[in-house]
Simulated scan of single mutants.
Amino acid sequence: MDNSQQFKYSTGVVAYPIFMVLAIWIVFWLQVRFFHGIKNFGVYPLTLKGLRGVLFSPFIHSDIKHLYHNSIPLLVLSMSLFYFYRKIAWKVLLYGIILSGFITWCIGRPANHIGASGLIYVLVSFIFFKGIFAKYYRLVALSFLVVFLYGSMIWYVFPGERGMSWEGHLAGLITGFLFALLFRKTIAKPERYVWQQPDYNEDDDPFLKHFDENGNFIELKDELDESEENQNNLQQESQVKIVYDFKESPAED
């Protein structure tokens, strides 16, 4: 089985999400201290200049409150992504930024759309629908946990609050759903032992051959013969042949 499909903890599960969150905080610090114009690098729909925001907008935030509200969901969801779907985690993140940003560029109002919330909606949507499609209890449980924690976010994909990019949220929701369909065959699964495989046959198991019908441990004939042969070889090697050579002393006068 491909080990990349197994649920397995690694340093990347924590390190990569922390690095991403740290990156958006560093960009915000640079924005506040040195480069105030960074804020204008968001997605501006249907303009050639606004396309640069497809890549840059997730790292740009309007104020500290905006940044804080995006940091915790991004950290939690990206850690879940790298733990349960580490084989495709980077694809979901990178392609998610590009596709959700492009959809925002296509459908958004003429305004500067910034923030990591579009990517967060990609992760929420992907993790939820992927777990439902997988029909595996751990992933389904993860889907319901996402709904419990972030289910209220669904209301922000509709026009409502002033100054909020609901178009970016909707673009992220659509992108996550599309990725759940696109990567449908890439289902993370727990590690299975040999005896858990569907084609497992007890008669072919070399370990179980050492037990009789009553559960008593037995030595197989081939192994006994090999063991006796090894013992004989060791005995032969351990036998030392000693030869004494006597030499007469010369006669004394």
Rank of each mutant, 00 (worst) to 15 (best):
F177C: 11
A171G: 01
S165H: 10
E202L: 07
W155L: 13
R192K: 15
N216H: 13
S165C: 12
L208Y: 14
L178N: 07
Q197Y: 10
G172V: 01
L145A: 14
Y150I: 02
R162H: 10
D203I: 07
I174A: 05
D212S: 02
G176P: 04
R162V: 09
L208D: 06
Q196Y: 11
Y193W: 13
D205T: 07
W195Q: 15
A188F: 00
F207P: 00
Q197G: 03
M164G: 03
E213Y: 01
D204L: 13
W166G: 04
V147S: 09
D204N: 13
W166P: 00
F211H: 02
A188M: 03
P206T: 01
G160V: 01
I154C: 06
G160H: 01
E219Q: 03
L220R: 11
K221I: 06
G151N: 02
D205C: 02
N216P: 10
W166K: 07
S165R: 10
H169R: 09
F217G: 03
P159A: 11
R192Y: 15
N214C: 01
G215F: 00
R162M: 10
K221M: 11
M164Q: 10
W166S: 09
T175Q: 09
G168D: 12
I154R: 07
V157I: 14
Y156K: 06
L145M: 14
L182N: 06
G168N: 15
M153F: 08
L145N: 09
D199C: 05
F158V: 07
L208N: 14
Q197S: 08
P159N: 05
Q196A: 12
E167Y: 06
K185I: 00
M164D: 05
E167L: 06
F207D: 09
G176Q: 04
D205I: 06
V146C: 12
S165A: 15
E202S: 10
L182A: 11
G160R: 03
I218K: 10
F211I: 04
L181F: 10
V147T: 10
F183W: 06
G151Q: 06
F179C: 05
V194R: 14
I187M: 15
Y150F: 13
V194K: 15
K221S: 11
L178P: 14
Y193F: 11
K209V: 00
S152C: 00
G151E: 07
P190C: 11
G168M: 14
V147Q: 09
D212H: 03
E161T: 12
L178G: 09
E202A: 13
I154A: 12
F158T: 07
E219V: 01
M164I: 09
D204H: 11
T186L: 13
F148N: 08
S165Y: 11
Y200S: 02
F158L: 15
K209S: 08
W195P: 00
Y156S: 13
N201P: 02
E213M: 00
L170R: 08
L208G: 05
P190R: 15
Y150W: 09
